[in-house]
Amino acid sequence: MALIELRDVRRTFTVRARAGRFSRTKREVRAVDGLSFDVEAGECVGYIGPNGAGKSTTIKMLTGILVPSSGRLRVAGVDPARERVALARRIGVVFGQRTTLWWDLPLRDSFELARRIYRIPDHRYRENLDRCVELLDLGELLDTPVRQLSLGQRMRGDLAAALLHDPRVLYLDEPTIGLDVVSKGKVREFLREVNRDRGTTVLLTTHDLTDIEQLCDRVMVIDHGRVVYDGGLDGLHATGRSERTLVVDLAEARPPIEVAGARVVKVEGPRQWLAFPSRQSAAPIVSAVAERYPLVDLSVREPAIEDVIARMYAEVAIG
């Protein structure tokens, strides 16, 4: 059985809007509209989508905060809605925009509270804490009040707090939001470590697609409460009808050249940019160009994942 299992999960909200001075209208909003997917133990899954796509509703259902309107949901063998407290011991949750640490107290105190609330056995607590301190470089920070930590340091503290009780699944909601490049790097490195060495299943939502590129072997794109893509990163390019770019430096400046299977998107002196579908191999195009024009240099550029996803959202919106 998969660690996380969703079958046709739906969640509707009733939104009341004021229609006139005294009247109100009720409207049903389907935040999640028939989600089905499995996540196996040990996977690292990126869960992305535009604002309001249903990401946080999904996370709230997976943590047991919200109860699905219909459908079947299982996390680590339990129904989150019915066994919220039991589930809480098996999952870790990190909200990027909201810390669960105690603002005025040293970091260590927040960890101590977790030890008692989660009833972590002493030796496990010590082992996990030592490991987190080492990997996240928290040694100097343990006795610093949380309010004096930088955003990046606080996020590292939050990550440690979420992992002390050996959760089988770690949900991360925008874990790198607002962090500088160095802190982002540290957080990603740690998550990779946790996922690979400890085998913790990771599900993360983010707007920073570098997180996905560096961490996840699987991406789920959600929009309007439905999964519009589920698969590897490379597959995303194919589905998104993304284009790679062949950049050629010709011997001399020319008007846009003509090559079958590609089109020129930009010309700058002797340098020209040719776009072609990502699925195609670059080889036939390169040889076609080389046959007809004197070539000085060439390179192939992969599409930026942002563009691919932006295009995907746009298509869903139209379709």
Partner: peptide, 21 residues
């Protein structure tokens, strides 16, 4: 299914409890 990893996770007394039993 057991979690692999450097430090194997135990099934402590806490993890078996069910709050809404």
């Amino acid at each position: 299914m057991a979690d692999p990893g450097l430090v194997p996770a135990p099934s402590g007394p806490g993890s078996a409890r069910t709050g809404f039993a």
